[in-house]
């Protein structure tokens, strides 16, 4: 745990110092929301059925932007090699990077959600907020779990910006569907959470699978 925390702390310090990744993620996410706001009139009937989709498209685009930059600092001066020759297991590097990616994506989601609600004139029940946060949390973990692995794989390729989304999006489809469906249900002021719980169970299952598999193959991904 200590080494995971060290890697996370180092990433947070680097990012808080430069703010490069976070600011671009936040701006990009906001721009996507604005574009959708122009495309779909606020308060329009049936908007709540696509609101979850709009929200997650913006989160995922912003998250991809963050993931693309996630290993930039590690590749500069060969720092990833520096980590690999240090007495740190590949799994610890993976969890350190995963936590840092999740942290920044969740921070962006936390700041963007109120803006989204205002822009689209949605009325979100306060009682649904804890489950909305849980959905965001589970969706972000699933997305970042695969994204962290693929970011490491694609970081040494010339076409990283293109490679990462091409590799990432097909794999995270189940997580995106689960997150969008659960968010849609929670934005409709539903009192019956049965379906929400079902989607959350699916999300949690995929998170478990993705995190375990990515953790196990991360060493291989970092290899030659």
């Amino acid at each position: 745990m200590k080494k995971i925390w060290l890697i996370l702390k180092k990433d947070l310090l680097l990012e808080f110092r430069t703010k490069e990744s976070f600011v671009s993620m936040l701006t990009f996410c906001l721009l996507v929301i604005v574009v959708f706001n122009f495309s779909f009139e606020a308060g329009r009937a049936g908007l709540e059925k696509i609101a979850g989709g709009i929200l997650w498209v913006s989160f995922i685009f912003a998250g991809t932007l963050g993931l693309t930059r996630s290993f930039n600092a590690e590749n500069e001066n060969g720092c990833l090699q520096g980590l690999r020759i240090s007495p740190v297991e590949a799994g610890q590097i993976y969890f350190g990077k995963l936590l840092s990616n999740c942290f920044f994506m969740l921070l962006v989601e936390f700041l963007i959600f109120p803006v989204f609600v205002i822009f689209f004139n949605l009325s979100v029940s306060l009682s649904n907020l804890p489950l909305l946060f849980l959905t965001a949390f589970l969706g972000t973990i699933g997305f970042s779990a695969v994204g962290t692995l693929l970011s490491a794989v694609s970081s040494n390729t010339k076409l990283q910006e293109v490679m990462l989304p091409i590799l990432l999006f097909p794999v995270v489809v189940p997580v995106v569907i689960g997150s969008v469906e659960a968010t849609n249900l929670l934005l409709t002021e539903t009192k019956d959470f049965t379906d929400v719980y079902e989607w959350l169970k699916i999300l949690a299952s995929f998170d478990g699978i993705f995190v375990s598999v990515c953790y196990l193959i991360f060493d291989f991904a970092l290899g030659e």
Binding site: K3, L6, K10, L13, L14, N77, C79, L83
Partner: peptide, 21 residues
């Protein structure tokens, strides 16, 4: 490759690696 984070100070770099070891 120097294995150094350019966004960290010399002290922060060495502290990071010292703790890893």
């Amino acid at each position: 490759n120097l294995f150094l984070y350019s966004g960290l100070s010399a002290l922060e770099n060495l502290t990071f690696f010292a703790k890893l070891y």
